[in-house]
Simulated assay, not measured.
Amino acid sequence: MGEDERRLPSADRASERDPLIRIEGVSKRYPAGANGEPVAALSDVNLGVASGSVLGVIGRSGAGKSTLIRLLNGLEKPTEGRVVVDGAEVSSLDERRLRDVRRRIGMVFQHFNLLASRTASGNVALPLEIAGVPRAAIRAQVAELLDLVGLADKRDRYPAELSGGQKQRVGIARALATGPKVLLSDEATSALDPETTRAILDLLARINRDLGLTIVLITHEMSVIRAIADQVAVLEHGRIVEGGAVFDVFTRPQTEITRALLAGEMGLRLPPSLAERLRPEAGPGTATVLRITFRGEHATDPIVARLAREMGIEANILSGTVDEIGGQPFGSLIVALPPGPDVAARASAFLSARDLAVDPVGYLAPAIGRSRHVA
């Protein structure tokens, strides 16, 4: 993979205007694993994140997400490359100077990491106490932060008395205590139920909007990326395999891993009775299955009707959705085409000529007792 392909194009272009975070040629290798070879957690990663933007980093377990976030806050040093946050090269600082930089980097954890012996206000106050802020100023700032996250009435409650969502709000308030420019979120919603997750993401979006914080979200859930991020980077085996504006990546994914991560989020799952009939290769009587993605002004086009009217190809809709990302509409359909030597090629050419993305899904075997291609 060439250097241009490894970069996150849209995020890099934004960072050229107003860079706050730059990851340049970063690789991270750990000591020898079970086979005696060094373990490569990250390989030649390049990222640029604009000030005030939200970057979502997504990948499966073991993709390198946690290593990346530990490099950003200086808990790890890269084997190669540079990590620059707000003008400071985090990867080259000694411990004393690193402490100063970390005051500009807030951290929100998956399992909250609150001190059980301290109240909500005591947990939020901790970084301010460590920084030597006067007590009166601490009290005022803690009260303001707890009000910001909607927990002014819970200031004297201990973590054991708080719900998961309330604990995470305390964690967010604590991360904001030192007035950071960057907020790092490491799977901050994965331990929460869907309703609480939405509330926390709404809070983070408001913090990004009102305070102008730059946020980097580490997650394995595309729904989190879609809800809040401007840009997305997809990690696989320690490399960025795809990246750019969320709308572009979601509606025109370029890699198999991205398509797999998007499958549920984009309403592209087939019903089980159809999925079990899907085959990777064509066979007698199989229907070609295509995924069609509509963007922008084409999101509500009656394309299936036009395909039948203009090309004489009757496509059966197996699954579909019409939605929007960041206010931009998009639609997705999975359709089955009738058997025939050139039907799929003709249909794909017709659709592609109308600026629709067309991706092969597989081949649908006939239902038992039926010879037609319909489901």
Rank of each mutant, 00 (worst) to 15 (best):
I225M: 02
G87E: 00
R96L: 12
A199P: 09
D44L: 02
L337C: 07
R7I: 04
D4E: 12
A50H: 09
N123E: 06
T251Q: 02
V26A: 04
K167M: 15
A173D: 05
A315P: 15
A152Q: 07
S10H: 15
G212S: 01
V246Q: 02
L278P: 12
S190I: 01
V57Y: 03
R104K: 15
A32T: 14
T288Y: 10
Q168Y: 11
E89N: 13
V84H: 07
I105L: 01
E256G: 08
R29I: 02
I215D: 00
I218P: 02
L8K: 00
S53H: 07
R60N: 01
S332M: 09
K28F: 13
E242W: 14
V133P: 10
A287P: 13
I218W: 01
R139N: 13
G296D: 15
T214C: 06
M222W: 10
N208S: 15
V39T: 12
G52T: 08
I69W: 04
D4I: 14
A263G: 05
L235V: 04
R99W: 11
R279V: 05
V232H: 04
T189S: 05
S163R: 01
D147E: 14
V39W: 13
I130S: 01
L148G: 04
T197Q: 10
R139P: 10
